[in-house]
Design a protein around this nucleic acid. Structure first.
Lengths: 218, 218
DNA sequence: ATAAAAATGTGGCTTAAACAACAGACTTTC
DNA sequence: GAAAGTCTGTTGTTTAAGCCACATTTTTAT
């Protein structure tokens, strides 16, 4: 892979060949070949590298413990993946990345970009901050995908309630939605969801009153 | 609203008060008060401004023509919205933004940040490019949310096929998924989806063979 | 305090999606 | 080109989500 090839990529837009070569060196770029079907980034791991697909394509997918698969996106040649996690290297990945065909992939350790976080003009600082914000927004959007991917009403409720519980570091918490909004967020029908909440309370899984919820451990 | 308040926000992290005041001026910042319940950014419109919520909260939602509502996210005080669309000002918004309570909101025209797109060090250039990539990724994630929000199998298929058709500017196109992958992407069960595709073909809505699809206008 | 309005919950019916089992078509491999 | 494997479509059954009508509770307004 040569610099002139890379100039076509959005990531290197407006950069000279020399600048691209500098970037590749500083960001510890590394090219890898990956076989069709293999999962090469795993949910739960963290990563410092983003990927650029030079050839082939990958799927971003979630595989839960009951064998259900959800494909969040398909990323093709000339596109990028894991940039969110590489920018937020403490966040464990929510997804697997699988080679959809034989792939040639360039990995870049973009953490090296933001070593001097507070230097530069205010425009540069605000750009860095925006990048963080955009990455977090990405995580939130992915989060909702996980809450809506279970097919059952109860599955979605549990996914959502568990995530709020983790967020608040407590089994007891308020949610920011009323019933109709919660149903709209989880893509459920309100009355059906009320029924399910009632059942779950009867079974002793949860206790709730209005917006206040408490999860019960078995 | 005063600069020292804003220093707590991620967007202005690592910036001095003077720098923040410069930013507010250059980005044409403007504070607005918005009443609970009102939709103040509409799907289909474009926007040049991102919003920072100083007080209150907003919901990001989609309201389709059959009256179905989907809430994509709830954005609270100290958080941001529409930054994706402000960074990609040609993209029409896919969502409405509604004040969930009475709100105090600061609007920033962040397009002014990237006027001199090709100046600066290579690090600065690559940061700008990354920001674009992250924003586009955001749009894709939102896109999938819309394909999975219809409750019916047919609704999801039509949402997906229509979007691909628009993307390719043609009523005839190949999709990048096999049946199992398409089902996994749309959160459907494969055999059921096959049934529905068959029905749709019988009804003359679509014609397909393998990965090749053709949409029929009535 | 009372009435009006909004939010939440319940029961019953209908419908469509999930699931299992299998058949046929198409690919790949040797 | 035969066999194995993969992908796709069909049928029938089960189950659970959607939906309607209405009851109950909670909140708001006067």
């Amino acid at each position: 892979m040569i610099a002139s090839e890379l100039q076509k990529l959005v990531l290197f837009r407006n950069m000279t060949e020399t600048e691209i070569l500098d970037a590749l060196r500083v960001l510890h770029s590394m090219e890898k070949h990956i076989k069709k079907g293999s999962i090469f980034l795993h949910a739960g791991d963290t990563t410092n590298a983003m990927g650029i697909i030079l050839e082939g394509s990958v799927t971003i997918e979630s595989n839960d413990m009951w064998g259900n698969k959800t494909i969040l996106s398909l990323v093709g040649a000339g596109q990028y993946f894991a940039e969110t996690y590489a920018l937020l290297p403490d966040e464990p990945m929510l997804v697997d990345v699988r080679a959809n065909e034989d792939c040639r992939i360039l990995f870049l350790y973009i953490g090296y970009l933001s070593e001097s976080w507070s230097s530069g003009s205010w425009k540069e600082k605000i750009l860095k901050n925006l990048l963080l914000i955009s990455s977090h927004k990405n995580l939130h959007l992915s989060g909702r995908s996980f809450h809506t991917s279970p097919k059952s009403c109860r599955g979605r409720l549990l996914s959502y309630l568990n995530s709020i519980s983790k967020q608040k570091h407590s089994l007891e918490f308020d949610i920011p939605f009323d019933r109709q909004q919660l149903a709209d967020y989880l893509n459920l029908e309100r009355t059906n969801m009320s029924k399910e909440l009632g059942k779950m309370q009867n079974e002793g899984i949860i206790i709730f009153r209005k917006n206040h919820f408490k999860l019960i451990q078995p």
